[in-house]
Computed example of a mutant assay.
Amino acid sequence: MRGYKKPTVSVIGASGYSGAELTKILLRHPSVKLEKLYAHTQAGKKVQDVYPFLDTDAVFESYGGEKDTDIYFLALPHGEASSIVPKLADAGKLVIDLSGDFRLKNPEEHLKYYLKSKDPDAVLTYAMPELFHDEIQQAKAVSNPGCYATSIILGIAPLVKKPLNSALVKSINCSAISGISGAGRSSKVELSFSEMSGNIRAYKVGKHQHTPEILQALDTDTVEPRFDFLFTPMIAPLVRGIYAVLNIQLDKHLPVSQIEKHFKEFYRSAPFVRVRPTMPEIQHVAYTNYCDIHIAESTDNGSAVIVTAIDNLVKGAAGQAVQNMNILLGYDETLGLL
């Protein structure tokens, strides 16, 4: 359109894996203009010297409180966004925060799972497009879901948010495997090639910080949960991807065909959720913003197994963040992501 001025976008924390993925998507986005890439530890370096695959002449800069672009993505370590987001929001900027600083409504849960205290009012709209699209449209600053949380919530929500044949969820036992990039770009001995090659291990069993986020999105909490929930995260020698196996106990039997039909109806307006008749694989979703879901089994005693797969850096972080930006701007939510 002649005379149309594209909204400008900057990324704070652009040198991490999620920040780099954001940069890659925003560079090809047809309806925004990428302005500044802030990264304190890499300040002064050319972006291409750090990430040669990014087609830009930009140089990383240190963020000093600037508010001169229309939209800000924050891809910072937990705890660092809490002082920046309110100032940007007060200045009228659109803000998408990828950290956990503003996700949880209950400050006691935040303190327990993030080991940091927070202002009880420091909560943003939880921006999972498939569940809270209307709320996102009305917001100015949003909190992007976590990667594990995205893969698990999407695999459970239809049975909790809109029970099928009045079948109630009694318990959920979830095991999910993440690629190493989920731990960030900083060097850690336990994540080195010699430690992880041919290896897999569980960690933070029942204590992972995405646990209260998952339950909150499912209309309950860790204090007085409506159903028993156990989450076992694992790390495997993959660069990217999350593969979640959800063992759900219902109070009555539901056939696989009915559950599958129910999921398809629930996500009929969700362009990035694919309810598959076959088992998902990481390679089916890598480098995409899709979440693939398969209803694997349902037994006579009410047990059901649902499997999901996402790319942790795209649907689990940067892709979902751009999807949320599109909604905030009134664009088609798939813009720049297909």
Rank of each mutant, 00 (worst) to 15 (best):
K6P: 09
K6H: 05
A14N: 04
S15F: 07
K24C: 15
K24Y: 15
L26M: 04
H29I: 08
S31Y: 00
V32F: 09
L34D: 09
L37C: 00
Y38K: 09
Y38Q: 11
A43C: 09
G44Y: 02
K46A: 10
V50E: 06
Y51F: 15
F53E: 12
L54Y: 04
T56E: 14
G65F: 04
T69K: 05
L74G: 09
S83N: 01
V85I: 13
S99A: 15
G100N: 00
R103F: 05
L104S: 12
K118R: 13
V123P: 06
T125C: 14
Y126I: 02
Y126N: 00
A127P: 08
P129W: 00
D134H: 05
A141K: 13
A141H: 03
P145T: 13
G146M: 13
G146Q: 08
Y148W: 12
G155H: 01
G155D: 13
V160N: 03
L164N: 04
N165C: 03
N173M: 07
G179A: 13
R185A: 05
S186F: 01
S192V: 09
F193G: 10
G198E: 07
R201I: 14
A202I: 00
K204Q: 14
G206R: 05
H208P: 07
L218I: 13
D221R: 15
T222H: 02
F229C: 05
I235Y: 14
P237V: 08
L238W: 13
V239C: 05
R240K: 13
P255R: 10
V256H: 01
H262T: 08
F263M: 03
K264H: 08
F272V: 01
R276H: 02
E281W: 03
E281T: 13
Q283F: 15
H284W: 02
V285K: 06
D292F: 00
T299S: 15
L313W: 12
G319H: 09
N326C: 03
Y331E: 06
D332I: 02
T334H: 04
L337T: 08
